[in-house]
Each structure stands twice: as C-alpha cells, then as structure tokens.
C-alpha cells in the first residue's frame, strides 16, 4: 500500500542542536499523501510545520538542524538517505515549494522571465528561445496580464501579489508532482490573498499536482484542501477530512482552534460572546522532554494521565485520528 503513495512520511524526527543539546522540534511525525491530493498542515507558530516542509526538500538548515530519525518516502524512495545530487533532481522537478515572503524570494538582478526560463532551461534542457516562450506561457497561466511584456520586468517592479504569482510560476514550471505552499499569502493583503487562493484552486485542476498547504488559518484550509493535519509542539495531534474536522474537532486543542474562528452569524440572544482564545502559549521545545501531553498545561480537560503519559494517535474511523487520552478513553 505504501508503494502507491506519492509521499509517505514515517516517524520523522527533526532535531536542532542548541547549546550542545539535541532539541527535537518535530517528533514521530507520520503522514501520507496521494497523487493529486491536497493536505493542509495547521498549527501555531513554532509547531514545526515549516521545518517539516523544508525537510521534504532536504532543506533543513544543517547545522544546527538534522533529520535524526524516520523516513520520507517519495514514490517509495527515501529522501532522507538521498544525496545532495539526487535531492537537486527532486527539487523543482518532483517537489517544489512556494515560500512565505514573495517580496524577497525573487532574485533582484534577473528579470522574472529570465528566472522562470532559467529554471525551465536547466530542468528540461530547453533552448533559450523555447525556455523564454515557456516562461511567458507560465506567466499567463498564473494570471499575469500581458505576460510577454511583463516577462521583461524586474522583481522590484511588481507588487507582492504579482511576485507571489511569479513564485508560483517558477515552482510549477517543471510540473512537479508535489507543490508545498508555506503560508503563501501571509505577507499579502486580504484581497490579494483571496486572489492567490483562487489561483491555487484553478491550478489544482489544471496541473493535477498534489498540494501541501501550510497555514495557521483554518478558514483557508477548509476552502483549499481535502484533508487537514494539526500539529502542536512538533507532533501531529489530529488529522482527518476537512469537513468532519471543522464540524466536529476532537482534540481539545483543535476544538480551541476552531472556536477561535470569528463567526458572522450571531447567537439568537444577540449578545456576541467574546471570541474564544486558548489560554497560555506553545511550550518551547526545551520543555518537551518531560513526559505527558504537550498541550496538558493549557487544556481545560486535562486529566492526571495527561501529565504523565504522552497520548498516542488513535484512529477514530473515517480516516480520522487524534492524539488525546480523552478520545482513547471514550473509545475504550
């Protein structure tokens, strides 16, 4: 079964060496992704979602970071064991990534056409003329108006939204099987965010690449993806299909996250309740070496067991799973 998956991450552990100590920032993380599937990874800042994305491309900054355990099987090939040469083939060709910061992610000294064309030329061995034509085609695909003129522009001449479109064009020019988008719209205006997500929706159908969307915005996940995975303090704590997840979150943390979404429909008594917030902050990775659930200190329903034993991820049916003793005990 695992052989057919596009991506299968198994027991991944990523550690960062700080002050002579290996601090894990991602622990025992496993997830799968099928061809053409879309997965949302949700979590607060510092929960390990971005570093997980980087690890898929072999880009964990090393030192101090390293993948200390586990496998990343891409079409059955373990990328953790792959050498730099092989990874360079995978990057762009099979997996590519769109980063958070469109303002600084383009090389300021080349025109955007040159940047897209260069990628096409290197990966496909196209002639310069053909690569340029391909670049213009890609700009058109990502919705840049008058692409043949715009291709001669330098990055500083474009707005943030336009730059992010160019980044998407670069990421897609080699027709990767997996596109990772790490908070692709965080740096953009709300209206531009909507445009970029519309573009993603459109491209999803056109190119058929699987997408991993990393965000802290549950609304975006609901709109964009089929499945969602919630991370907390470096672990996966819940996953499942998006619709069920939004309707009935299981882990107390995800319940909290879902209740944090402001709703426009007011309750009948017309007294809008204050927006829910989860008390406390995400524990730092140093605090995670003690036993017990990482969320227990912030959890309203924490039990004695939560502070001594780390909950295991338990399947809940319908492809859902949550790592919480409440669920395990309810099922027992």
């Amino acid at each position: 079964m695992t052989g057919k998956k596009l991506l299968s991450v198994r027991n991944l552990e990523i550690t960062f060496r700080t002050e002579g100590e290996d601090i894990p920032v991602v622990r025992d993380l496993s997830f799968d992704l099928d061809h053409g599937d879309t997965l949302g990874i949700v979590g607060e800042s510092g929960c390990g979602k971005s570093i997980t994305a980087l690890s898929l491309l072999g880009l964990v900054p090393s030192p101090p970071g390293r993948i200390s355990k586990g496998q990343i099987l891409f079409e059955g090939e373990d990328l953790v064991q792959a050498g730099e040469r092989r990874l360079n083939q995978v990057r762009g060709n099979d997996i590519s990534m769109v980063f958070q910061e469109p303002m600084t992610s383009l090389n300021p000294v080349y025109t955007i056409g040159e940047q897209i064309a260069e990628t096409a030329r290197v990966h496909f061995g196209l002639s310069p003329a053909k690569a340029w034509a391909r670049a213009v085609e890609m700009l058109d695909l990502v919705g840049i108006p008058s692409p043949d003129t715009r291709a001669h522009d330098f990055p500083h001449q474009l707005s943030g939204g336009m730059r992010q479109r160019v980044m998407i064009a670069i990421a897609l020019v080699c027709e990767p099987k997996l596109l990772i988008a790490d908070e692709p719209t965080t740096a953009l205006d709300v209206t531009v965010q909507a445009q970029v997500f519309d573009l993603f929706q459109e491209l999803k159908q056109k190119i058929g690449a699987a997408i991993i969307l990393i965000t802290h915005d549950i609304g975006v996940v609901a709109q964009m993806t089929n499945r969602v995975m919630v991370m907390y303090a470096g672990r996966k704590i819940e996953e499942g299909p998006v619709a069920e997840f939004i309707r009935d979150p299981r882990h107390p943390y995800t319940r909290g996250l879902v209740s944090c979404i402001p709703r426009l429909r007011l309750p009948p008594d017309d007294h809008p309740a204050p927006l829910f917030e989860i008390p406390g902050v995400v524990p730092s990775p140093w605090e995670l070496n003690r036993p017990g659930c990482a969320f227990a200190p912030r959890c309203a329903r924490a039990m004695a067991r939560c502070r001594t034993e780390n909950p295991v991820l338990a399947p809940l049916g319908d492809g859902r799973a949550a790592a919480c003793w409440l669920e395990t005990e309810a099922a027992a």
Binding site: R91, N107, P108, V122
Partner: peptide
C-alpha cells in the same frame, strides 16, 4: 536571503548558487 533558499528549493546546486545567483547580487 530568501531568494537563495527559493533557488535551492527548485534544484539549484552549490556552483549555480555561488556563481549565478549570489555573485551577480554581490557585483
């Protein structure tokens, strides 16, 4: 810089990063 990371993420090797990506910016 972000764009160096971005170039790496689409498969640019070290030689390319040094001579084609960073050097023109340092010129």
């Amino acid at each position: 810089m972000e764009f160096v990371k971005a170039e790496r993420s689409i498969g640019a090797g070290n030689a390319r990063l040094i001579w084609r990506v960073i050097l023109p910016n340092a010129a």
